[in-house]
Design a protein around this nucleic acid. Structure first.
Ligand SMILES: [Zn+2]
Ligand SMILES: [Zn+2]
Ligand SMILES: [Zn+2]
Ligand SMILES: [Zn+2]
Lengths: 121, 121
DNA sequence: TCACAAATGAAAATGATTTTCATTTCCATA
DNA sequence: TATGGAAATGAAAATCATTTTCATTTGTGA
């Protein structure tokens, strides 16, 4: 195993605590940092092992890395213009927890997103 | 778009209603059915569009297709073995509706999924 | 300084999925 | 029945994220 390159973590933070390996890599490139894509992948994997970040999957299958302990929230996204509202998910948090307990699941996470057409669209 | 090849659906059923495109393809090959991988992918996609199957992601990113009833529901998925439980989402339905109203969104849909480790894993 | 382990990254390999495109199968209508 | 166009098919190539290889560089303690 290898240790995580600290610049990868700080870039993930700067990206809003939520990005794919490719996105972290491109962001670092744009900022003029010299790093290899391989190192980005290895560092993110190492952060996952250390439980410093979570890994989820986008709908298209790309892995996205999420800083743990980040202020957890959900999104309301407009299908028309892409406008996004960050929303509180209290009801969902409870629901996820209840369901997981009921079926004996551990180390539980969840995804939830609402999409529709905003007033302007 | 194209219509689903009926043999793909019946193979998915025979596979226990839960398999990846590659697995459906290999199964059909083994059974001596002549079909192209492309057609398997297209048929599964079409079944997803028609809401006859759900699509989820394995931990490794591979898409798995799952036959499901037409009633709206959500999933509790094991990150370890892929085992899936269909669950009721009453709390979520209400939450999505409330949030959408609050922000004036129309034609609203949502996604929600819980993942963790099941008892055996 | 030296030796050795860890870190790095370019390039190649992998593997699922999508795209291309030429061919075949259907089907409605004359 | 013949025929023209639309839909379906699949082999091969392209795509794209991710992993593996491997040679090189860097760091560190003796
Ligand atoms: Zn909008
Ligand atoms: Zn939540
Ligand atoms: Zn399990
Ligand atoms: Zn729902």
């Amino acid at each position: 195993m290898s240790r995580s390159n600290p610049k990868v973590l700080s870039t993930l933070e700067r990206a809003g605590g939520f990005a794919s390996a490719q996105e972290v890599y491109r962001l670092m490139q744009r900022e003029g940092q010299s790093i290899g894509l391989t190192t980005v992948y290895r560092s993110l994997q190492s952060l996952v092992n250390d439980k410093i970040v979570d890994v989820l999957r986008r709908d298209d299958g790309e892995a996205i890395y999420r800083l743990c302990g980040d202020a957890h929230h959900h999104h309301l996204v407009c299908k028309g213009c892409g406008d996004t509202v960050e929303i509180e998910g209290g009801a969902i948090e409870k629901w996820a927890k209840t369901m997981a307990e009921e079926f004996g699941f551990r180390e539980v996470g969840h995804t939830a997103e609402i999409f529709g057409l905003c007033q302007r669209c």
